[in-house]
């Protein structure tokens, strides 16, 4: 196909320079349908829409209008004509399909966002650029980073099954492949992606009320539904039995995470007596920072304090808070968490 077209294409390409200049000027004089329509398009925003007459605005009452319209008339039964989302997903071929999550009529719809959290605004206006300035590493123009060789191990041996088998992880028990440290650019400034609040209540194996109280408290302070977890193994020393519910977690994202951190940093932590800070040994090397709060400290959250009497005092649990960032090292994660106002103490874990 292309071979057959070649002579014509080559000819047009070579002749293009010899074409009269009229063709170059042509676009200037060309008129499209949109040229006339362009001035007709309104450039106004919703703010400066034409004002309604004064009395029409003053007298407008949607409830009264609706009642007047319905007076004396029977409305159609609503349930028969409204679309209800199916409770269960029955596969792509089923005629009754669920709505998209963004539709308010969907069962999975979550309203929000409800505001622009202060922490997010501070991050965008101050923290991100400061971290960029602090961690920027200059390379001369023309520098090319050395190529990262294969970090996983080959399968060595005679076995024919080694061919095409996925590569082996690093040597050693519990070793994982460390994250690559990319050079810092404006695209990979570390940010907080999630916050996980976790509370383990082994007493729940004897009395499930502990579990309920822990769940209520976590929901009250985080504003998200908690998830409960079973013990994975029998641990005789801790009295853990496999398969029993022992802990609750709340995973916070976006607005919830920002509001929780604001509350924690500005209200709760300053009120703790002799709080030293987050232990410097915290951090898993992949950008996650964790620290714990005791039951006394957890009771300082304003949501708990407002009706502290509603919770059985013996059952208030402690919790662990993990701040999950997309930093690739402890150092960067610490820089970010320090910037939002968490102090560290002791020997730092690098």
């Amino acid at each position: 196909m292309a071979l057959r077209e070649l002579p014509y294409r080559t000819a047009t390409a070579l002749c293009r320079d010899a074409r009269p200049t009229v063709s170059a000027i042509q676009p200037l004089f060309r008129r499209n349908a949109s040229t006339d329509a362009a001035p007709e398009v309104e450039s106004t925003s919703f703010l400066d829409a034409p004002a309604k007459p004064e009395e029409a605005v003053k007298d407008f009452d949607p409830i009264a209008r609706s009642r007047a319209r319905r007076r004396g008339k029977k409305q159609l039964p609503p349930s028969r004509y409204q679309y209800r989302e199916p409770k269960y997903y029955r596969g792509p071929l089923h005629p009754h399909q669920p709505l998209p999550v963004s539709d308010p009529a969907s069962r999975r719809f979550q309203p929000g966002p409800f505001g622009l959290p202060r922490l997010d605004q501070t991050y965008q206006s101050t923290i991100a650029q400061d971290i960029l300035a602090m961690t920027y590493q200059h390379y001369p123009p023309g520098y090319r980073a050395p190529k990262v060789e294969q970090r996983l191990r080959e399968w060595q041996g005679e076995s024919p099954y080694y061919k095409g088998r996925p590569l082996r992880g690093p040597r050693g028990k519990g070793e994982v492949l460390r994250l690559l440290q990319e050079p810092r650019t404006f695209r990979n400034i570390p940010k907080i992606t999630k916050v996980v609040v976790h509370s383990m209540v082994p007493e729940a194996m004897q009395d499930s009320a502990n579990m309920h109280v822990a769940g209520m408290i976590l929901q009250a302070i985080t504003n998200v539904r908690v998830e409960s977890h079973k013990a994975k193994h029998n641990v005789v020393g801790w009295g853990l039995r496999e398969g029993r519910y022992v802990s609750v977690t709340a995973t916070l994202e976006r607005e919830d995470a920002s509001h929780f951190l604001e509350k924690l940093i500005d209200v709760v932590l300053p009120r703790i007596k002799e709080w030293k800070g987050v232990p410097g040994s915290s951090g898993d090397g992949h950008g996650n920072i964790s620290f714990g709060l005791t039951p006394d400290q957890l009771a300082l959250f304003p949501e708990i304090e407002v009706n502290y009497d509603a919770y059985p005092p013996k059952m208030i649990p402690g919790c662990h808070i993990t701040i999950i960032t997309d930093a690739t090292s402890n150092k960067d994660a610490r820089l970010l968490t320090q910037a939002i106002g968490l102090p560290f103490y002791g020997k730092l874990n690098d």
């Binding site: 292309a2 070649l6 294409r9 080559t10 390409a13 070579l14």
Partner: peptide, 9 residues
């Protein structure tokens, strides 16, 4: 060859 000849592709 065609690409070298011009921008007609």
């Amino acid at each position: 060859v065609a690409a070298r000849a011009g921008q007609s592709i």
